[in-house]
């Protein structure tokens, strides 16, 4: 009987944690908390997109660039073409997904550090295009006056409303990622990570599946970009550079690379830090660096991984 309770607790732990995190800003209730919640959600989406690739043992640093692509696409589609936000949001995901799908057959042939460097270069090229193509993307000044998100004719100007949109998008993305790791899809993801030659010998085309996952990861990053653009109403190239990708990576690793809620947990822990310790800005990076080193050294499977292991639900 106690075993059944324990297995129920293990099954309920994820949804309970998710519900607690999603409900935190409304429970605290201040605009600042909603603001943090929105930032956490956007960063968690980006970290989730990176996790999709980490699940197949490929670290892509292009995800911040894909996020930028989604942000600029969403901004231009709504501001200059007058598309409703409800149409721009999925398009902001599809555009980077198409780019990733087109480049995947070339990029994904390489592995390890070479893939990391190629995606780093791709991310830099995307940002460079934003900087250099001034007439379309506004150069270093970026784009201003991006209209607020709106759904069913109602502008989501208030922070609680935008927070609800962010949370809904994140929940949908989590559901998609969960679907992706179930059934035959999960078998293929696990096989790509664990033993690709064996997977191929069983009749699976590895490269097309890797490309599909790369496109899916870019789709999630593009959604994060669209939310970012419409929340701030202003975007510039530097927001989508190397450090954005690295921060998302840190969040994912900190929370737990293989756990669905790992990226969100990492974002919850790391995103508020700079906002909360604005006064101690001089020591912030030092503290951040030391904390990160300690976490990675002592908790290599991430915080959620430790919590799960201590409950004995998974070895």
């Amino acid at each position: 009987m106690s075993a059944r309770i324990r297995s129920f607790a293990a099954a309920a732990a994820g949804p309970a944690l998710l519900a607690a995190l999603v409900l935190l800003p409304p429970l605290l209730g201040r605009p600042f908390h909603y603001h943090l919640g929105i930032l956490v959600g956007i960063n968690a989406l980006l970290a989730l997109s990176m996790q999709v690739m980490l699940r197949i043992n490929q670290l892509s640093l292009a995800q911040a660039g894909f996020m930028g692509l989604g942000a600029y696409a969403s901004a231009l589609l709504t501001r200059d073409i007058g598309l409703p936000f409800a149409a721009a949001l999925p398009l902001a995901g599809l555009l980077p997904a198409l780019l990733a799908g087109a480049l995947g057959p070339v990029l994904l042939r390489v592995r390890g550090v070479h893939f990391v460097l190629l995606t780093f270069a791709l991310g830099e090229v995307i940002v460079l295009v934003f900087v250099e193509w001034v007439s379309l993307f506004g150069g270093n000044n970026g784009l201003l006056d991006i209209p607020p998100a709106s759904l069913f004719g109602t502008a989501l100007r208030a922070k609680p409303a935008f927070y609800a949109l962010t949370a809904a998008t994140l929940l949908a993305a989590l559901a998609l990622c969960r679907w992706m790791t179930r059934g035959e899809r999960g078998m293929i993801v696990a096989g790509l990570a664990g033993n690709e030659p064996l997977l191929q010998s069983l009749g699976v085309d590895a490269l097309p599946h890797r490309c599909a996952l790369f496109a899916f990861s870019a789709f999630l990053a593009g959604l994060a970009g669209s939310l970012y653009a419409h929340y701030f109403g202003y975007i510039s190239p530097e927001a989508f550079g190397f450090w954005t990708a690295v921060n998302a990576l840190i969040m994912g690793v900190l929370g737990g690379v293989t756990l669905l809620l790992g990226p969100l947990t990492g974002a919850v822990l790391l995103v508020p830090l700079p906002e909360l310790f604005r006064d101690a800005i001089a020591y912030q990076r030092l503290f951040y660096g030391l904390a990160l080193m300690a976490l990675l050294l002592f908790l290599p499977r991430g915080l959620l991984g430790v919590l799960r292991a201590s409950k004995g639900s998974t070895p």
Partner: peptide, 15 residues
């Protein structure tokens, strides 16, 4: 089980 099943999911569209 996987060995028998995965050939039916060989290409992404098969999923």
């Amino acid at each position: 089980h996987r060995a028998a099943l995965l050939r039916h999911a060989g290409r992404p569209a098969d999923l």
